[in-house]
C-alpha cells in the first residue's frame, strides 16, 4: 500500500508521530537551554518524516537500531513519551530508570534496540536482530537508522556485506542530513552512498526525506522485500537537520541564510499538510486538533518528568549483570 492509500486513521497517526517528535525536540531544546536537563542531546527536528515514514511500515515485533540522534526513532517505534522525557531528565520513572539518558533510550518490548552513543554501533546490532528472525523462522525485519557520517564507519560496511551475503531482512536507513557534526558530508563521503549498496548487489533507493510519502513508499518496498526473504535494502534519505549537532553547538559553520532557508523550504510537517490537503485526505481542522493534543501530551510529560523522583542511590550498582557472582 502506498502512503496515499493509507486510511484516515493511519494518516492521522503518522502526522501525530511527526508532530510529537517535533514538539518533543523543540521542548527538549528549550528545557536544555534553561539548564534543567543534564548533559547533552542531539535533536532530531527536521528529520521526522524519515523515522515515521519508515516505522509506519513496521509492527511491534520488528526491531530498529538507532543513533545518538535517537528521540525521533524511539517515538516512531512506539516508545512512551512520558518515559522518554523522564529519562532525559535523569529520573527514576525514565524508560531506562535514569541510567541511560538521551543517548541510550531503549525499549526492547517495543522493538527499539536503543539509541547509541557510538557512531556505527547500530548496523551490526540490526544484523543480529535480523539473524534472530531468520534463525527462528519469523518474518520480522530489522531497520538500522544511521547518519551520513556513519556510512564511513567500518562496522557499516561490514554489516552491509554480512546482510547481503546472508540475505538478512535488514533495512539500512541512511539519514543524510548533510553533516557529521560540523563537517559537511560532501567533504568526507566519497562517491554516492547508494552505489555502496549497488556494489554489493544490494537493493537501494534514494528518497526525499522531507516527504513522508516518498519515505513511506520506498520503505514499504524494502520491508516487503525483507519479509519475503529477499534480503537487505539501503535507503538513502535526504533530510535537513534543524538544530546544531548537539545542544551546545554554536552551529556557526552554516550561514544564517542557509539555516533559515532550510526551515522555510524543507519542513516535513508543512509538506505533509499540503499533500494531504491537496489530495483532500484530511482537513486542516483534523490536523490542528492533533497539534493541540500533542502539545498537551508533551506539556504533561515535562511536568511529570520534573516532579518525578531521582533514581535511588542503590541502583548505581544494580543491573550490571543478570547474576553476579
Amino acid at each position: 500500500m502506498t502512503g496515499m492509500q493509507l486510511s484516515r486513521e493511519k494518516l492521522l497517526e503518522a502526522y501525530r508521530m511527526m508532530r510529537t517528535i517535533r514538539v518533543f525536540e523543540d521542548r527538549v531544546s528549550a528545557e536544555m537551554a534553561s539548564g534543567d536537563i543534564p548533559g547533552n542531546t542531539h535533536l532530531y527536528a527536521g528529520q521526522e518524516a524519515s523515522a515515521v515514514g519508515v516505522c509506519m511500515n513496521l509492527v511491534q515485533s520488528d526491531n530498529i537500531a538507532s543513533t545518538h540522534r535517537g528521540h525521533g526513532h524511539c517515538i516512531a517505534k512506539g516508545c512512551d513519551v512520558h518515559g522518554m522525557m523522564a529519562e532525559i531528565f535523569g529520573k527514576d520513572t525514565g524508560i531506562c530508570r535514569g541510567k541511560g539518558g538521551s543517548m541510550h533510550i531503549a525499549d526492547l518490548s517495543k522493538g527499539m534496540l536503543g539509541a547509541n552513543g557510538i557512531v556505527g554501533g547500530g548496523p551490526p546490532l540490526a544484523c543480529g536482530a535480523a539473524m534472530t528472525a531468520q534463525v527462528l523462522g519469523r518474518d520480522d525485519v530489522a531497520v538500522v537508522f544511521s547518519g551520513d557520517g556513519a556510512i564511513n564507519q567500518g562496522t557499516t560496511a561490514e554489516s552491509m556485506n554480512l546482510a547481503q551475503v546472508w540475505k538478512l531482512p535488514v533495512i539500512f536507513a541512511v539519514e543524510d542530513n548533510g553533516f557529521g557534526e560540523a563537517t559537511a558530508s560532501s567533504f568526507v563521503v566519497a562517491g554516492e552512498i547508494v552505489k555502496r549498496a549497488d556494489a554489493l548487489g544490494m537493493a537501494f533507493a534514494k528518497v526525499d526525506g522531507v516527504d513522508f510519502f516518498a519515505v513511506h513508499d520506498a520503505a514499504a518496498e524494502a520491508v516487503a522485500r525483507a519479509r519475503r526473504g529477499e534480503g537487505p535494502t539501503l535507503l538513502h534519505i535526504e533530510t535537513p537537520r534543524y538544530y546544531g549537532h548537539f545542544s551546545g553547538d554554536p552551529d556557526n559553520y552554516r550561514t544564517a541564510e542557509e539555516k533559515a532557508a532550510m526551515r522555510r523550504d524543507r519542513d516535513c510537517l508543512t509538506t505533509f499538510r499540503r499533500r494531504v490537503g491537496e489530495a483532500k485526505l484530511l482537513a486542516e481542522s483534523d490536523l490542528d486538533a492533533v497539534d493541540a493534543e500533542v502539545q498537551a501530551v508533551i506539556d504533561s510529560a515535562v511536568k511529570a518528568a520534573r516532579a518525578a523522583p531521582q533514581p535511588p542511590l542503590d541502583s548505581l550498582t544494580t543491573d550490571v549483570y543478570v547474576r553476579y557472582p
Partner: peptide, 20 residues
Amino acid sequence: GEDIAGGAGASGQQDAWGGA
C-alpha cells in the same frame, strides 16, 4: 581527527570548532 577544524565543506565559518 574528526572536526579538529570543523566546518569543512560547509557554507559558514571554517575552523568552526577546532575539535569537539
